[in-house]
């Protein structure tokens, strides 16, 4: 079976006034159809940039590709022309985003925005774009399937008239218009209330099951990932440090950073155990640490860690990039 998404040695930098920040350093990631994969890491570890490079949404400049390749369904994403890209976005890959407040255009009605996407997909799949009445009908149906009340009336409303949860449902509906194969959800619940978070997560889980979607869920919330994803990928400072079945990784983390992340989650059942923050700060990517990028914050670091960059190895049923993985 060909992988749906195949990222090989992907290296990406941003050029700025202060120099070049290498935000993704040799990412290798293979996603098979039907997988649900969670990408976890601190803010600034490159998880959103990774997601955006997959749909080729990183602007160049300031972005700059230093090497590597991304293949979606066997096709080189970086080599796609305009028409192929239009098919990729929405049809191949759809995205939902962190803050539903800012990802809807404030000056167009919900209906106008959805009709625009529906017709763009008609065009991308080589059909004549349907007329606006038919497109509105489809938009209303989609909104209804997101369990939004009065979907037909919703079409004439504007983003500022909706709540955060409603907006996120609208954005999910828009993402599903092109019946995508890979759904990338970039922190989809971070900006929502806790009660709404649960509803939106349940909706995403149902849609993934119903449409047999491959899901790439990006979050810094291990609980969200554990609830929706079978596989978890832990990122640190532009590198993948651990990758494996969520149950395996969570039960027995092998990378010190993964252990630190898990220890930083407060446990309601053991209130006497205080959550342990990871000491230190994420490194400045303008001049990243030598060797293992995590070594300045790692309690276990030895001399080798400051010198050699660890490669991903299979240890105890998952991949991990740590010189000391066997000893942990």
């Amino acid at each position: 079976m060909t992988p749906l998404l195949d990222i090989r040695d992907w290296r990406l930098a941003f050029d700025g006034f202060e120099g070049r920040a290498q935000v993704l350093d040799g990412i290798n990631l293979t996603v098979m159809p039907g997988e649900t994969i969670g990408i976890v890491g601190e803010t600034g570890c490159g998880k959103s940039v990774l997601a955006r490079s997959v749909a080729r949404l990183v602007d160049m400049p300031p972005g700059r590709i230093l090497g590597g390749s991304i293949h979606f369904d066997g096709q080189d994403v970086m080599a796609m022309n305009g028409a192929a890209l239009a098919r990729l976005r929405g049809h191949g890959i759809a995205m939902i985003f962190q803050d539903p407040m800012t990802y809807l255009n404030p000056v167009f009605s919900i209906g106008a925005q959805m009709v625009d996407v529906i017709r763009a997909h008609d065009r991308a799949s080589g059909q004549r774009p349907r007329n606006s009445a038919a497109a509105r009908k489809k938009a209303a149906d989609l909104l209804g399937s997101m369990r939004l009340p009065e979907p037909a009336g919703m079409l004439d409303r504007y983003p500022h008239e909706l709540s955060g949860g409603m907006r996120q449902r609208v954005l999910i509906a828009m993402a599903l218009i092109g019946t995508p194969r890979l759904l990338i959800a970039d922190e989809p619940t971070t900006a929502l209330d806790v009660t709404i978070q649960a509803q939106v997560l349940r909706l995403i889980a149902e849609l993934v099951a119903m449409h047999a979607l491959t899901l790439m869920l990006i979050s810094h919330d291990l609980g969200v990932i554990g609830a929706l994803c079978r596989r978890v990928v832990v990122m640190y400072a532009g590198t993948i440090v651990e990758d494996g079945e969520a149950t395996t990784v969570f039960a027995n983390p092998r990378h010190p950073y993964t252990r630190g992340l898990l220890a930083a989650v407060p446990d309601l059942e053991k209130p006497q155990h205080r959550a342990q923050p990871i000491p230190g700060q994420i490194p400045n990517l303008l001049s990243p640490p030598s060797g293992c990028r995590f070594h300045p914050r790692c309690a276990l670091a030895v001399e080798q860690c400051t010198r050699d960059k660890p490669v991903m190895r299979d240890v105890a049923g998952r991949s991990v990039a740590c010189h000391l993985a066997e000893h942990a």
Partner: peptide, 17 residues
């Protein structure tokens, strides 16, 4: 550089539009 422009591109709407 607004988020909704990123979203519109991610939804597959043509660049010119």
């Amino acid at each position: 550089s607004a988020d909704y422009i990123t979203a519109a591109r991610a939804h597959g709407i043509a660049r010119l539009r």
